[in-house]
Write a protein that binds this DNA or RNA. Sequence first.
DNA 1: CGACTCCTACTACAATTTGTAGTGTAAGGA
DNA 2: TCCTTACACTACAAATTGTAGTAGGAGTCG
Lengths: 139, 139
Amino acid sequence: MKMQNFKYEGSGLNRFFGPLEAKIMEILWNNAEEMTIKDVQQKLDKEAKANNFNTVMTVMNRLVDKGVLQKKAVARSSQYKPVVTREAFMETQSKELTLDLIEEFGSLAVTHMVDALDKVDPGLLDQLEQKIKEMKKDR
Amino acid sequence: MKMQNFKYEGSGLNRFFGPLEAKIMEILWNNAEEMTIKDVQQKLDKEAKANNFNTVMTVMNRLVDKGVLQKKAVARSSQYKPVVTREAFMETQSKELTLDLIEEFGSLAVTHMVDALDKVDPGLLDQLEQKIKEMKKDR
DNA sequence: CGACTCCTACTACAATTTGTAGTGTAAGGA
DNA sequence: TCCTTACACTACAAATTGTAGTAGGAGTCG
């Protein structure tokens, strides 16, 4: 399950998926249980306008092809669920992106980090400072 | 000039552009002067296999549409040059991405930053520590 | 058993992005 | 006037994402 892009537009799952894909993943991840296409379709319908069953199926099966969803064939209707938890997914993306960012921009990124952290949540600055200390201590 | 994606694959300009677009931007940014399509095409030909003039033109004009290149109509052949310097471009992307990363992942990103910095270049850790101190002092 | 419902597979189309390239036109020089 | 050449316009292909029709098969109900 290799993501292609991190999108500048949107937020949350929309950074990684198309709009419909994101909504579907959202639903799957919000449900502890495995779900059928119908389940997902009905949840979608509650939120927005009616979605064609086949549309939902196609997108879900594409997500299976991409390795994001797992499909278990059951008698009447197949069960789908994410391959990894949302937390694990975000963890992976965060790690990958952070590494890429630093590889790509090096000290340029460092400069912006401090500003960005301060802007988003100054508490994160202390957290970061703490992490650095720990890292250095371990050597 | 709003970029769409940061690609996980590739490196450098390939993170932001298609392969040919990236090569073209590379050439434009490496040349202090404005260049014609022909200039760019010939540079490309030196590096790789022959490129059709029209192909280069189409891609360059698309880059103009995207606001990445500027086109100045001259008598016989138009002059093209990047709207911003490579440094300014990288600066903008770095800033944008860092902010997005932190908005999206918050403290998750903080954790990975330290590891990533240590992995790529431990010297960056000191730099970061320094920056944090400065930021805090100013308050 | 036969008819019906409903899930699934297969297929197809549209828009967008990126690479590729042909054709036609117009402008400038010989 | 004719020719070269740059440019505009147009088109097509592959990939990505959203959308949806059709057909077949499997279970259900009478």
